[in-house]
Write a protein that binds this DNA or RNA. Structure first.
Length: 425
RNA sequence: GGACAGGUGGCCGAGUGGUUGAAGGCACCGGUCUCGAAAACCGGCAUACCGGCAACGGUAUCGUGAGUUCGAAUCUCACCCUGUCCGCCA
């Protein structure tokens, strides 16, 4: 969420950010209305407070007269009249305030200066590692290979839950557990992250804090009886760990990693790249989250992304780093790198990680602050997060990229101690 | 799920209708003292918003929301959370 003051002081900046996202035409009317409402809101506040000040004076005078044993009937009547007037004014103020808030919740973050403007066609490959296989036509797609090896059981997943819910079996199930161990161990021992284990359902305030709600509520599975929501990513519970808290400067950067299952309804995505493990309703992921100062957050995005890349290198999967253009950058994000791995049999680059810096967009929503120095006013932290990594697409890529001529699948060395074998056959 | 008890400032804690934004203590910041520190003493010390170039003025905030009242931390209702006991349970 944006600082409401942007609507008064930096409307041009806000407008320019929306333009670079390619959203100005769509959002211009909203911005105009928000700007007008914000003025109305302030006028209403001023009026309400003036009447409240009047009432406070009258009230105090009543007290004084009572104490002196004098009559206060007239004053009490006046107070009653003021009270009625305040009621009406307050309603007007609350209405304007709620309307402005609602609009602010609908405005995406402003992209950083080094984010290219335009839609996804302006996404830029900034680096790459390893060589994608060019013999994809001779390879078996992961959904067939997984079934053949007995590690994937898509049909039974669909039976017990629905399409997009995956059953891993045997070495496949152990592969999930192995990936979790590998990733968490690297991030805790080599990258210094604190390991956390967090709830997979959260309340509305948490979903709002990270920017998932209210705009994207339909993307989440809800436990309606308790008004709880299945997390789409561990980013939600972990970023909200310090919601409504004030950190010390010495606490920063604060860094967490967490495994979680991730739940996404994928409403509206039906039929699009949904084969096999490409797009599923429930998947597993290890997530990295950082709380940073505004001064270091941009640089920490580079660090975070490189830490995610470490995992891909250990898994010996060729990948590329893509800087998302403004129009393709997520709602809450100020700048995002996607990591994509080539799945040769599918013939596509699969997004296996998305690393973002949110500036103070999430921190303002979630009210996460830090004190720059003792006695100084708290400021909003900057938040970052990135998948490192999402398992399902990694498993798809492992099954395809590491396929051998005899139909077996080679297990990268880093994974072997956890999986207890060097080959799936 | 049931029965009690409770939610007050960074922390502890007083406060049951009228200068209480809130006593007192701790912590923190500045000063005196000291070679320096501790102790002692003096002073300061919430947040957000509105108006104002500023000085400053105003408003709100005692778990959350609604209500009663001229006036609510104090009274009423609903909800949330915490603790204890009981029940249930991996």
């Amino acid at each position: 969420m944006h600082d409401i003051r942007l609507l008064r002081d930096q409307l041009d900046h806000l407008r320019e950010g929306m333009r670079r996202r390619g959203k100005l035409a769509e959002l211009q009317p909203l911005l105009d209305r928000a700007e007008a409402l914000e003025r109305e809101r302030r006028a209403a506040i001023t009026e309400v407070e003036a009447q409240q000040a009047r009432r406070n004076k009258v009230t105090q005078e009543v007290a004084a007269r009572r104490k002196a044993g004098e009559d206060a009937t007239a004053l009490i009547a006046e107070g009653r009249a003021i009270g009625d007037a305040i009621g009406a004014l307050e309603a007007r103020r609350n209405e304007a305030d709620a309307a402005v808030q609602a609009m602010l919740y609908e405005l995406p973050n402003i992209p950083l200066a080094d984010v290219p403007e335009g839609d996804e066609s302006a996404n830029t490959v900034v680096s790459s590692w390893g060589a994608p296989r060019d013999d994809g036509a001779t390879l078996t797609p992961h959904w067939d290979k997984g079934a053949e090896l007995g590690v994937l059981d898509l049909a039974r997943g669909a039976k017990i839950s629905g399409s997009g819910f995956i059953v891993y079996r045997g070495a496949g199930a152990r592969l999930v557990r192995s990936l979790m161990n590998l990733m968490l161990d690297i991030h805790t021992t080599e990258h210094g992250y604190e390991e956390t284990w967090v709830p997979f359902v959260v309340n509305r305030a948490s979903m709002t804090g990270t920017g998932n709600f209210p705009k994207f509520e339909e993307d989440a599975y809800a436990v309606t009886a308790d008004e709880l929501f299945l997390i789409p990513t561990a980013e939600v519970p972990v970023t909200n760990l310090y919601r409504d808290e004030i950190l010390e400067l010495s606490d920063l950067p604060k860094t967490f990693c967490a495994y979680s299952a991730c739940f996404r309804r994928e409403a509206g995505a039906a039929g699009k790249d949904t084969r096999g493990l490409l797009r599923v309703h429930q998947f597993d992921k290890v997530e990295l989250v950082r709380y940073a100062t505004p001064e270091t957050s941009r640089q920490e995005l580079e660090l975070l992304t490189s830490q995610a890349e470490t995992i891909l290198q250990r898994l010996e999967l060729p990948y590329r780093r893509v800087l998302l253009a403004a129009g393709d950058t997520g709602f809450s994000s100020a700048m995002t790198y996607d990591l994509e791995v080539f799945a040769p049999a599918v013939g596509k680059w699969l997004e296996v990680s998305s690393c973002s810096v949110f500036a103070d967009f999430q921190a303002r929503r979630a009210n996460i602050r830090y004190r720059p120095a003792p006695g100084e006013k708290p400021r909003f932290v900057h938040t970052l997060n990135g998948s490192a990594l999402a398992f399902s697409r990694i498993i798809a890529c492992l099954l395809e990229h590491h396929q051998q001529a005899d139909g077996s699948v080679r297990i990268p060395e880093a994974l072997q101690p956890w999986l207890g074998r060097a080959v799936l056959r």
